[in-house]
Nucleic acid binder design. Structure first.
Lengths: 106, 106
DNA sequence: CAAATACTGAAGTCATCGCTTCACTGACCG
DNA sequence: CGGTCAGTGAAGCGATGACTTCAGTATTTG
């Protein structure tokens, strides 16, 4: 699979999509139930769900005529992995700058 | 200030922008030096730098005719804050699902 | 001072995004 | 079976995004 980190961040860059995730953190929901409080069409939600699925934030499953959506961890873990991978490098660099800035910024 | 989290994630959603950050993690660089290995115009880099500055990933400073760019921590911290804020909620939810899935997935 | 350097601003192009409407397919209910 | 109900696919639309080119503006430098 190998989640595309570009798309993972892009997925989080949309407020409606993050709202969907927040909503799902309260428990699984159907597509139309997700659409209701967000003021967009069911179609729009469907499109958002597709990108959230591709980026590992959501897993969906159709039972009868209703599609049930719930959180998945892969996308979230991808973000955390990116963060930890860069934390060390950046901290080193930022620390180095910090000591310089004591005089530089003054 | 209050960094817009939308824009923070959008900023990271572009590969050129992340390449700039990676480059800067090796040390401060001028605009043209950043452009060189990335195969885009200096103008394009300037535009990327503007969004990276607005989202707290980069700080720049013009000395004479050359603008020197270096990493800043605010944007990075915003991402980590978002992650920690959601980790607990999601973990609870995902754990709850996990126990259900033992049977659900079979 | 003149020419080269380092960047900036405005404008334009092309692709992608978020969203809509409309027509449709299945599933369930009476 | 007929009528809702939940969701899907295709097409289109306006706005943004990631670039580019071209024409400046300061700053060095020879």
């Amino acid at each position: 699979m190998a989640l595309d980190i570009d798309r993972v961040f892009q997925a989080l860059g949309d407020p409606t999509r993050r709202a969907i995730l927040d909503r799902l953190s309260l428990g699984p929901q159907s597509v139309s139930k997700l659409a209701e409080p967000l003021g967009v069409t069911v179609t729009a939600i469907g499109q958002h769900l597709q990108v959230l699925e591709e980026t590992g934030f959501v897993r969906t499953q159709k039972a009868g005529r209703v599609r049930s959506c719930r959180l998945e961890s892969a996308g979230f873990r991808a973000v955390e992995q990116w963060a930890t991978e860069h934390r060390t490098t950046w901290e080193r660099r930022l620390d180095a700058l910090g000591s310089l800035l004591a005089e530089d910024d003054h």
